[in-house]
Nucleic acid binder design. Structure first.
Lengths: 97, 97
DNA sequence: TCGATTTATAACTATTCGGCTATCAACACC
DNA sequence: GGTGTTGATAGCCGAATAGTTATAAATCGA
């Protein structure tokens, strides 16, 4: 079982890296293979695979096979939980002058 | 200068730790000294000081002196930016079932 | 001024992160 | 079945995290 606390830990940690946020941005346009996700970055393919592992651990990305390729899909649900947590603070950032 | 990217990195990283989220929760009730923030945790005072440093780096906490004490105050503004970024994905998590 | 309180800092350790290169596994296509 | 493509895994490295204890600095109160 994965607690809500652990889920928030993993989600926020996944979002803390700019490469991972860029990957999520790319996945907004639709599914992509690992090779397609690697292309825009000056970074090795294994490095991107590692980033995908963190995104998958947080539940932000799911994967399925397509022949040799592993297609990656955006799963935004954990973001809803993160926003839910943050919303508890809304009155504090709106209270400001 | 601090870029928006760097700000998001620091904010999400700060929020990724449950101790730091608990500290922010305590600060919703109002200002608190470092000693008061340390009390609920089974953790040394220097450990809490370090957590406060990350929160301060993200701009989520500010501090001012009160005699020997350093009072900590919640600064929720960076959360608004984080929510702003997350909102770009709202349609994706609402589309799903 | 002395002692107590509060907090930060230094130094150390173990673990995780973010990158690399090298290599292995799975699949498609002759 | 051999070859090429795609992606994962292993092992390495340096930097950052998350904790510790010990100590220094700042302030208050007597």
């Amino acid at each position: 079982m994965v607690t809500a606390t652990q889920q928030l830990n993993d989600t926020f940690a996944a979002l803390a890296d700019p490469t991972r946020r860029a990957i999520l941005g790319r996945l907004m346009e639709g599914e992509a293979s690992v090779a397609e996700l690697t292309e825009p970055f000056e970074m090795s393919q294994p490095a991107i695979s590692k980033h995908l592992k963190y995104l998958e651990r947080a539940g932000l990305v799911s994967r399925h096979r397509d022949a040799q390729r592993r297609m990656c899909r955006l799963e935004a649900a954990p973001m809803a939980q993160a926003v839910g947590w943050l919303e508890g603070y809304r009155e504090h950032w709106e209270a400001n002058y």
